[in-house]
């Protein structure tokens, strides 16, 4: 192979193809990222000269109740976007693939799959508008259903009451995310060799045993992908919060990215906003690294 390549004129010729990409990434990603880290050591309102203050922004961050609230809230968001959809998704994918797909027909299974996936395709802003209306305290559909069936006393100000706002956002995020693991896991299950199942049948294994011992084991790569990608998107959540609650009431649904945005564009604390987003970036990178290490270690153990 090396021979062929050298006949084609060597590797250096390929460098030229990398040029547009490298220029673009330098301008849009590398320089802004470094600038952002730099800004995080300054006090700056976005105009005039930034004033170097060293680690002061980070010191302030550690003592800021809003900052800690935003990270406490993000843990709840991770439960809603990662853990619950993955667990329900595993169960639904198994039922759809193993039972509906095999005993009723693949058409039925894929119809259910499409239905469950539909919330995933909506623009974030549209999700926010629809649910903002459904959960509205006075004009909302949710409360008016409760009233109609005589459960009016259960009606709440779902998005406006600090006791309920975070739970409501979590509920919406489960709705949004559920389809993704279902689709991923169903495609992973197609890889499972039916002979393994037949062998397990002969051993008298039940559905649950086959599911936990064979299926979950074999779709591990998909489970990792889902866990990593959804955790990262949970950490980055912005649009739904912006449209549904704006981080409120109080700081009950505040998340790091919205907190950074507020400091950049509402409070004109560019330095502080930059510090928040730098911390968020670090957390994402460390978490991804840990995930990848666990995954590699796991793959090695099995090999």
């Amino acid at each position: 192979m090396a021979n062929t390549r050298s006949r084609q004129g060597g590797k250096s010729g390929y460098l030229l193809f990398l040029l547009p990409g490298v220029l673009l990434f330098t301008a849009v990603i590398v320089i802004p990222l470094l600038m952002n880290i730099g800004i995080s050591f300054t006090r700056w309102q976005g105009i005039g000269n930034p004033q170097w203050i060293g680690l002061e922004n980070y010191d302030r961050l550690i003592h800021d109740a809003n900052f800690w609230a935003s990270f406490r809230n993000i843990i709840y968001i991770i439960v809603a976007m990662v853990i619950i959809p993955t667990l329900i998704g595993l169960f639904l994918a198994a039922v759809l693939f193993d039972y509906v797909g095999k005993k009723i027909g693949p058409g039925a299974a894929s119809a259910f799959r499409s239905g469950l996936y539909l919330p995933q395709v909506l623009p974030v802003a549209v999700t926010g508008i629809v649910w903002g209306w459904l959960l509205n305290s006075s004009t909302g559909v949710f409360n008016s259903i409760l009233e109609k069936i005589g459960l009016g006393f259960l009606a709440q100000n779902w998005l406006g009451d600090p006791k309920w706002a975070l739970w409501s956002v979590m509920f919406v995020m489960v709705w949004v995310q559920l389809g993704y693991p279902v689709v991923m896991f169903m495609s992973g299950l197609q890889r499972v060799d039916p002979e393994l199942y037949e062998a397990a049948d002969l051993d008298g294994a039940g559905w649950w045993q086959k599911f936990t011992r064979i299926a979950i084991h074999l779709i591990k790569p998909e489970i990792y992908v889902v866990l990593v990608t959804t955790t990262i998107s949970a950490l980055k959540i912005f649009g739904q919060i912006f449209v549904l609650t704006r981080g409120g009431p109080g700081n009950s649904t505040l998340v790091p990215s919205y907190f950074a945005w507020q400091n950049f564009f509402e409070k004109f604390n560019a330095g502080y906003g930059a510090a928040i987003s730098t911390v968020l970036t670090l957390i994402i990178i460390v978490l991804t690294y840990v995930f990848l290490r666990i995954q590699t270690a796991d793959e090695r153990r099995e090999a």
């Binding site: 390929y14 802004p32 976005g46 950074a260 945005w261």
Partner: peptide, 30 residues
């Protein structure tokens, strides 16, 4: 082309993909 240092390039693109947009947006705005 299997350029030398391709793993580093790939790690870079993966990282670029992971970054929260908040970490770029203010300098880009400026």
């Amino acid at each position: 082309g299997r350029l030398r240092g391709r793993t580093a390039f790939l790690m870079f693109f993966l990282l670029a993909n992971l970054l929260p947009q908040e970490a770029l947006v203010y300098p880009l705005y400026y």
